[in-house]
């Protein structure tokens, strides 16, 4: 019997793994946003002294990992696994960073849900007794994402108000069996939900039902309610998706209105011309590992539910007229 399983999709950890250190690196635009004081490093330019944006992205991913390990005061030899993913084809940022770092590596892809997916899998490995310390990380970069998914940067096109701005940045966390706060207590693994959205310029609308499904499943599996949390935070639904999610959760009988927010709304100021808000793997990662983690350490929040959302599409599937399958993973992080 799987003794740690709860309900249909949730795991309750027996010895909740700890997040003993984090790091966050962001690009210049994110560094002008409302959370600028919480990031460990703000880049002066998107190129970061590299020859291409892809190289810059893998460099910030690698440096985020190194910074998190440094913050944990653990020697490199104690890091047993490295779990990472990103948005680029064949997750090259993660794979190439792993080449430099030299840890045993699990490459994962959950689009923008990667931060929560990594935290969940990392915690499972720790609580399962397969390792004592590991690093999870993810990255995204506005310029690499634009050229892969959309148009060249210098093309003079207009994006619709539903479009979102891919966050440039990388976040990493060291998860450990060492008992200290904050801890990962529950993980609810999401199902892939597709509500028929086809517009790749409206990810919030596409992903909201996946977030709702996972959040409601989490409450039902754990018998918790929104009252059990100080904050419920989705990954990158941005303004439109967040409103839709909030309303749908209410329809399912849970009122999250006074404690629900979204990383895509937190990271940018509306004046920064990002349309609906932020997106990308780094959106949930830097907000969680930068802002939320630091505020949990200070005790402002004691129980948060991170629900990172991802759209599992590609340019090929969009061009072939397919709808957008989406996923959301929930991770409960608590000060015990």
């Amino acid at each position: 019997m799987a003794g740690k399983k709860m309900g249909l999709q949730t795991i309750r950890f027996q010895n909740p793994p700890s997040i003993i250190a984090t790091s966050s690196i962001v690009g210049p635009k994110e560094g002008q946003g409302p959370l600028k004081d919480y990031f460990d490093l703000i880049l002066n330019d998107n190129m970061y002294k590299e020859k291409s944006w892809e190289k810059a992205e893998r460099k910030i991913l690698k440096e985020a990992v190194e910074m998190a390990i440094k913050n944990s005061n653990l020697p490199y030899s104690k890091i047993e696994y490295f779990i990472a993913g990103d948005l680029l084809n064949q997750i090259i940022s993660a794979g190439f960073a792993a080449r430099e770092l030299g840890f045993p590596f699990f490459g994962i892809y959950g689009a923008c849900s990667t931060a929560a997916e990594g935290l969940g899998l990392g915690a499972i490995i720790i609580d399962g007794g397969f390792a004592d310390n590991l690093v999870v990380a993810t990255s995204s970069h506005y310029c690499t994402a634009e050229r892969q998914y959309r148009f060249p940067l210098e093309l003079g096109n207009q994006s619709p108000p539903t479009a979102q701005w891919t966050v440039t940045g990388a976040g990493a966390a060291v998860i450990s069996s060492r008992p200290q706060n904050p801890r990962i207590t529950y993980v609810t693994t999401g199902k892939v939900i597709d509500m028929g959205e086809t517009n790749p310029n409206d990810m919030g609308t596409a992903m909201a039902p996946a977030a709702v499904d996972t959040i409601v499943r989490h409450f039902n599996d754990t018998n918790r309610t929104p009252d059990d949390y100080d904050l419920i935070v989705t990954g990158d639904l941005a303004s439109i998706g967040k409103d839709i999610a909030e309303e749908l959760i209410k329809q399912k009988g849970f009122d999250v209105s006074n404690k629900y927010t979204d990383c895509g709304l937190m990271i940018f100021d509306p004046q920064q011309d990002v349309h609906a808000g932020g997106s990308g793997c780094a959106c949930a990662a830097v907000v969680t590992f930068g802002y939320l983690y630091k505020e949990m350490m200070k005790g402002k929040y004691n129980r948060i539910l991170l629900v990172a959302t991802g759209a599992l599409l590609s340019t090929t599937s969009t061009q072939q007229g397919e709808t957008i399958p989406c996923i959301a993973h929930a991770v409960a992080i608590e000060n015990l």
């Binding site: 539903t162 509500m195 028929g196 959205e197 609308t205 039902p209 439109i240 409103d243 839709i244």
Partner: peptide, 10 residues
């Protein structure tokens, strides 16, 4: 769902 979000979309 598509009908529901139609009014939400700016």
């Amino acid at each position: 769902y598509q009908n529901f979000v139609k009014q939400k979309r700016p």
